[in-house]
């Protein structure tokens, strides 16, 4: 259970996250959507203790993320960020193996090696395992980072816009993969997304943010309504049902 209570994060006078209360039950995929600057990524970074809060608390399974030892949390919660700056040249296998650090502290056991191999297989990265990351395409690189995050073996997996820089085919593949991570591996996936239609198609629960506050949350079907979307995006969106799935289309 991820519990956010009265979370506030401010830069100067601007409150990017302005009193968010949120309870995310374990299991399934939760999408966080909203316009640019709504505070989605900031909220996610606060949950992953990458940013300090200016007010409120975040707990994961009852542990206050800003007070609990970092290495304890690293076994419960992992996060994929948008930009990943690497100082060294790493192979895909090296990168994925880092996901085991919270457990192995850099001394991998045969168990760790097996889990790395499984993560590589899960993301179909075996053909590239020995390649350096800078020799890969954007989509393969992104998959390698997701493999590391999954390899960390945490119950909670946060992903900040994992579809950035992915073409349609890879974006769909990524969402299916997250679906499998939730369904087959039993992970709790929280993902920041830009595309409402993708969020509606693949999530179990949607949280919509605007101006640093949560304006709507619930099942995708409760989100995909013209008046709800208008409140979130300040935009007229027609919702059609195609093959039984709701699709939001902006007016031209």
């Amino acid at each position: 259970m991820i519990q956010v209570s009265g979370a506030v994060k401010a830069y100067g006078d601007v409150r990017v996250v302005d009193g968010v209360d949120l309870a995310l039950a374990p299991g399934g995929i939760t999408s966080i959507i909203g316009p640019n600057g709504a505070g989605k990524s900031t909220l996610l970074s606060c949950v992953a203790r990458l940013l300090d809060l200016d007010g409120g608390t975040v707990t994961v399974d009852g542990l206050d993320v800003h007070r609990t030892a970092s290495d304890v949390l690293a076994r419960r919660l992992s996060m994929l960020r948008q930009d990943n700056h690497l100082t060294a040249r790493l192979t895909v296998r090296d990168l994925v193996a880092f996901g085991r650090y919270p457990w192995s502290k850099g001394r991998p056991t045969p168990d760790d090696d097996r889990l790395v191999a499984e993560a590589l297989a899960f993301l179909e990265l075996e053909p590239f395992a020995g390649r350096y990351l800078d020799e890969l395409s954007g989509g393969q690189r992104q998959r390698a980072f997701v493999a590391m995050v999954l390899c960390q073996g945490t119950d909670y997996v946060l992903l900040d816009e994992p579809l950035n820089n992915l073409d349609l085919r890879h974006a769909v593949a990524m969402m299916r993969l997250l679906r499998r991570a939730a369904d087959e591996l039993g992970r709790t996936v929280v993902v920041v997304l830009h595309d409402v239609n993708v969020a509606a198609a693949y999530s179990d629960h949607v949280v919509a943010m605007r101006d640093g506050v949560v304006v709507h949350q619930g099942a995708p079907s409760t989100l995909m309504r013209t008046e709800v979307l208008a409140e979130i995006y300040d935009l007229e969106l027609a919702v059609h049902h195609l093959d039984g799935r709701p699709v939001a289309v902006p007016a031209l």
Binding site: S45, A48, R49, L50, S70, D71, V72, L73, A74, R75, L77, S78, M79, R81, N84, H85, L86, T87, L95, F98, G99, Y101, P102, Q152
Partner: peptide, 10 residues
């Protein structure tokens, strides 16, 4: 891996 990723890894 950078400051944020290192923090996530504990």
């Amino acid at each position: 891996l950078g400051h944020p990723t290192a923090t996530v890894l504990g």
